[in-house]
């Protein structure tokens, strides 16, 4: 069964696309049909298989064997993440996994960061969303190489998707890779992508108790960016309370307070990016 749409196909329904290449292609619809046919084949195949398996099982005499497995369920994801990490380290790529709720301003933060720093640093972007090429189009418009991963019904990126996308991106040494995860404050926390640092973004409109309500994401992150600080005058939002709550969950979190819209506070974030990329060398 595929984890994306729950159909019987063994192949994952994840689609990785380059927005610039797509503009020159008219085969889009055809591809879709192909995809569906594939699924149906998978279905019939799967059913035949199990029937054989059943009758087989009954012929045997029943003697039970206990297998002590002791295997991590996320082992496959962790192994692929380790492969990604090794690749990033060998090429001195600083990879960031950006996680947050939908609408906290991940893409806006990326757009601004890329526009302001693209002269000084080499960037690549992988966008993760369930549907659409919207985010990849926004990044492509800034002139940065980008791939869009559409996870279908999937609620998070997994390390094998990054593995496939990275191969297609052909990243130069000494670059920064920004991976914008699917907007979701719960599921992506469990899936290591092999990133150098995990950055959780929270906006001032989300309420200061989010780190307590969704602790896993804050527990596994290194950096916490508080976005939309320009809206604070209009909100009942206590930024110190937010930071206190997040620090309870993860005392090692480093904070940046900024507004991707007005540009306020962006300098400290840029400074951190440059510093960390250099220390990688």
């Amino acid at each position: 069964m595929c984890g994306t749409c729950g159909c019987g196909s063994e192949t994952n329904g994840v689609v990785i696309q380059n927005p610039l290449e797509l503009k020159n292609q008219q085969h889009h619809l055809q591809n879709h049909e192909h995809h569906h046919e594939h699924h149906h084949q998978g279905h019939s195949h799967g059913h035949e298989h199990t029937h054989e398996g059943h009758s087989h099982g009954h012929e045997h005499t029943h003697h039970k064997t206990v297998l002590e497995i002791e295997q991590d369920i996320l082992q496959h994801n962790d192994i692929m993440a380790a492969r990604n990490k090794g690749y990033f380290e060998a090429k001195n790529i600083f990879a960031l996994n950006l996680v947050s709720s939908p609408g906290s301003g991940k893409t806006a933060l990326l757009e601004r960061t890329l526009k302001d720093l693209k002269k000084d640093l080499s960037f690549y972007v992988i966008e993760g969303d369930q549907q659409t090429l919207n985010d990849a189009n926004r990044i492509a418009a800034v002139g940065i190489p980008v791939l869009q991963i559409n996870t279908g019904k999937g609620c998070h990126l997994e390390s094998d998707m990054i593995y496939d996308a990275v191969k297609k991106l052909n990243i130069n040494d000494n670059s920064i890779l920004m991976i914008e995860n699917v907007g979701n404050l719960v599921c992506p926390s469990m899936f290591n992508l092999g990133e150098s640092k995990r950055v959780v973004i929270i906006s001032t409109t989300e309420g200061e108790d989010k780190p307590l309500k969704y602790p896993d994401m804050f527990h596994t992150s290194d950096i916490c960016i508080v976005n939309k600080i320009d809206l604070i005058p209009y909100l009942q939002f206590d930024i110190e309370q937010l930071k206190e709550n997040a620090s309870k969950v993860n005392p090692h979190l480093q904070f940046f307070e900024l507004s991707a819209t007005t540009g306020e506070g962006m300098e400290a974030w840029y400074h951190w990016l440059k510093e960390n990329r250099i220390t990688l060398k």
């Binding site: 045997h60 039970k64 064997t65 297998l67 497995i69 369920i73 309870k248 005392p251």
Partner: peptide, 20 residues
């Protein structure tokens, strides 16, 4: 203090299977 190491509680494992 909030500084702590997690000793237990993050497990997510298949411990054993009984197969025939």
């Amino acid at each position: 203090s909030n500084f702590k190491g997690i000793l237990k509680g993050k497990e997510l494992r298949v411990k054993a299977l009984e197969v025939v």
